[in-house]
Amino acid sequence: MQSIKNISLGLFMTLITSSIYAGAQISNAKTATVTIRGNSRACKTQIEKAGTQKKQAQLTWDPSTQKAALVYNSHTTTKDAVLRRVALAGFDNESYNAPVTAYQALPEGCRYKGNITAMHPQKDTCDAPMEQHRDHAAANATVSKLESLYQSYFSIQQALVRSDAKTVAQKAGELAGLVRSVKMGELSAREHNVWMSVMKKLDQQAAALKGASGIEKQRAAFASLTETLYPLIKASGSPYKVYYNHCPMYHGGAYWLSKEQGIKNPYYGSKMLTCGSTKETLQ
């Protein structure tokens, strides 16, 4: 019995000692000189940290020559495996170019290629059709008198997507003002009818949103505001497409209106950004 105790104790000891001595030396060592791009001393630590791995590889980079001395265990790793890690940390080298996003994540002083943009900026493709819609809207004479009100709603919606409580508060103030200043006589007949039924509620809800403190309260106020605004914007017949979207999770189901096709959920910020579905497209 005592011997079994001793065995297990011994086993523990070997475990501990082997972990202490790990990483001391690289066996089956092979050396190579590799080219790695970078512009300053600041990059040095990052490059070396990315390339060096316990017992596997040791990388020493010289900023002046953009060359690095690499010692690696040729049985367990390869030169390319080390250079791949260096590239994934953001540094182009003789074998691999860094992914754009990894490069952009480098600290400013370390961006040796200056500021580069992604090869396929998604922004442009998204915005282009919207721009057209706006032009179209300008050309169209029958722009609703409520347009500015809608625009401020959309600004709030976009700010909620970013969880930007400050902008929401600011735009909510603007919205509350706009609701008060609507001149009923200038509205179209259809709008007028709906306006009469939602006016009071809209005023209260805009005020509630303005007064809401904190992003969560703002979101709750925004949910009820949307429901009131929906019949109105439908009656206005917007010159561009408006998407009526549904988020089934938020407080047992909530809607939001958006100018953008594709789901960007304002109720959870980045957590559940793409949760939801378009229920109706208004135009």
């Binding site: 490069y103 952009q104 994540a105 500021n115 943009t117 969880s163």
Partner: peptide, 15 residues
Amino acid sequence: TGHGHHSMQADPAMP
């Protein structure tokens, strides 16, 4: 997240 400076200018903290 790996967003560069340029994308931030357009839309801060937006995935």
